[in-house]
Amino acid sequence: MRIPCPCCGARGNEEFTYLGPAGLTRPAPDASEDAWHAYMHERENPAGMHRELWWHGQGCRAWIVVTRDVRTHRIEHAALARDPEAAR
């Protein structure tokens, strides 16, 4: 699997570290136990398109939001996490 880094181009996935799903919003410190539990533990874990965070640690060191079909490993889209487009 090669990940198309917006800075470095297509690179082998061993250069990257995986964090998990993108778009989880950290609750306010005084948010309910339910909100924290959902954020910490509960995952959609879809069998299909998945937006996820990868870190290009052995390259440009940027955080990247990758949209990938987890049934085939086909990558549809990759954008810098700080880019507002990635937050779509």
């Binding site: 082998g12 996935n13 061993e14 998990g20 996820e52 987890v70 049934r71 085939t72 490993h73």
Partner: peptide, 11 residues
């Protein structure tokens, strides 16, 4: 990384 593919990668 998340996967339902029943096959992995080379690294």
């Amino acid at each position: 990384y998340n996967s339902y593919a029943q096959r992995g990668n080379l690294p």
